[in-house]
Write a protein that binds this DNA or RNA. Structure first.
Length: 430
RNA sequence: GGAGAGGUGGCAGAGUGGUCGAAUGUACCUGACUCGAAAUCAGGCGUAGGUGCAAGCCUACCGUGGGUUCGAAUCCCACCCUCUCCGCCA
């Protein structure tokens, strides 16, 4: 959420910065809401102050045993207008809140301006795509003999679900374990296990709600028709970041660095027809997520660091990738700046997103009321960052495709061998 | 699921309709005393929001949401959470 003070004082600047994201700020709606809010709120508070003062008088008079009927009559005169104000104000404040909750974050000044992904800027490349002296197969073909079973996934749950058995299932687990060990053991993140089902407010905190409800899976508790719905997390960023909501952290607690391996559930509304083959785009996938809660002055430093943490995973696995700075038009709702990591997929002959690292600045912190005590002893909003380290399913795809052999086997990257119980090559069963 | 107890400021803990945003203790900060510290003494010390150049003034907040009342931490209703015991259960 943007700082409402900023909108009040510099609406044109805000509008210009949002325009770079392709969003037209409805300044007249804001102005109308703000005018209404200001007059109604000040009037309400004025009447409340009068009522409180008169009520105190009544208390004093009655305490002394004197007649209070005159004051009582004064208070009664406030009645109707006060009641009307107190009834109208919450609705107006909610409208204002809803307006603010629907606005995306302001892009950082260093973000390249662009309309869509074609405006993204490649920052660097690592590794070079391998050459194959045979026709490369995609992960669907390679995986078929290794236990990667899309038919069963579809039979159980429909499209965009995958069933894995045997060696591929183990490889999938090995990848997650390896990533988690790396981020906790070498990069200083605290391993977490979080709920996968969360309350509505939690999604408002990180920005999935109210605007992107269609992207979520939501659930109802058995037997209780009255209970509100809860949501399956679409990333553990949600539960990790919200772990500091409504908190005032001591200065020396920063930075908080958290990581978790979790499933992620996404309805992929609006993605019909995209990446329908294979496990690039699934309704359920695993991810090792990194989250940092940092001092506002350190957040851009932390972003660079976090990108490095994600890159390390790809480097240890020997997977070629590039780092891309997303442009204003391609960034996510909550982000002020985002780097994507794109891994080389030989079967697609292109780089595909495998990690996304974002600095959300105070955007989420303001929604969550996540603060720290600054050097002056004042409460100040933290900055939050999140990044994938990495998406496990897509990493599995990348390993299968980049390490495939002519005979259909797949060499296990050295870093994973210990996690595979010493297995160095996956041989197809068929 | 059943029975009971409870949710008040960083913590502890009072407050049962009227100058209560809340006693008191403790922690913390500032000052005094001290060579320094401890002890002691004095003062300060919640959050969000509105308004104002500012000092300040004002509003809301005692688990959450409603209600009664001129006035609610206090009374009423619903819900949530925590703890204890029992049942069930991976």
């Amino acid at each position: 959420m943007l700082d409402v003070q900023l909108l009040r004082s510099q609406i044109e600047t805000v509008a210009a910065r949002l325009a770079s994201r392709g969003l037209t700020l409805d300044t007249s709606t804001f102005a109308a809401l703000e005018d209404g809010r200001k007059s109604l709120q000040t009037r309400t508070q004025e009447l409340q102050a009068k009522r409180n003062a008169l009520s105190k008088q009544i208390g004093m008079l009655k305490g002394k045993g004197e007649d209070a009927s005159a004051v009582l009559a004064d208070v009664a005169r406030l009645g109707d207008e006060l009641k009307a104000c107190e009834q109208a104000l919450p609705g107006l404040l909610e409208k204002m809140e809803a307006f603010l909750l629907g606005l995306p974050n302001l892009p950082h000044e260093s973000v390249p301006v662009g309309e869509d992904e074609s405006g993204n800027v490649e920052v660097r490349r690592w590794g070079s795509p391998g050459s194959f002296d045979f026709e490369v197969r995609d992960h669907v073909e390679i995986g078929a003999g290794l236990g990667l079973d899309f038919d069963t996934g579809a039979r159980l749950s429909g499209s965009r679900f995958t069933f894995m058995r045997g060696k591929v299932a183990r490889l999938h687990r090995a990848l997650a374990q390896f990533m988690l060990d790396l981020q906790t053991g070498e990069h200083g993140y605290t391993e977490c296990y979080t709920p996968y089902i969360v309350n509505r407010d939690i999604l408002v905190g990180t920005g999935q709600l109210p605007k992107f409800r269609d992207d979520m899976f939501w659930v109802l508790r058995g037997g209780d028709e009255q209970a509100g719905e809860q949501y399956l997390i679409s990333t553990s960023e949600i539960s990790l970041t919200n772990s500091v909501r409504d908190q005032v952290l001591p200065l020396d607690a920063l930075p908080v660095k958290l990581t978790a391996h979790s499933p992620c559930f996404r309805s992929e509304a609006g993605s019909a027809g995209r990446d329908t083959r294979g496990m690039i785009r699934q309704h359920q996938f695993d991810k090792v997520e990194m989250v940092q809660i940092v001092h506002p002055e350190k957040s851009y430093e932390a972003l660079e660091e976090m990108v490095g943490h994600a890159e390390t995973v790809l480097q240890r696995l020997g997977l070629p990738y590039r780092v891309v700075a997303l442009c204003t038009g391609d960034m996510g709702f909550s982000a002020a700046k985002t780097y994507d990591l794109e891994v080389w997929l030989p079967a697609q002959n292109t780089y595909r997103e495998i990690s996304s690292c974002s600095n959300c600045e105070a955007f989420q912190a303001r929604r969550m009321q996540a603060r720290f005590k600054n050097v002056n002893g004042k409460n100040e909003l933290v900055h939050t960052l999140n990044g994938s380290g990495l998406a496990v399913g897509r990493t599995l795809v990348a390993v299968l495709e980049n390490y495939q052999q002519a005979d259909g086997s797949v060499v296990i990257p050295k870093a994973l061998v210990p996690y595979m119980g010493g297995i160095e090559v996956l041989e197809p069963a068929l």
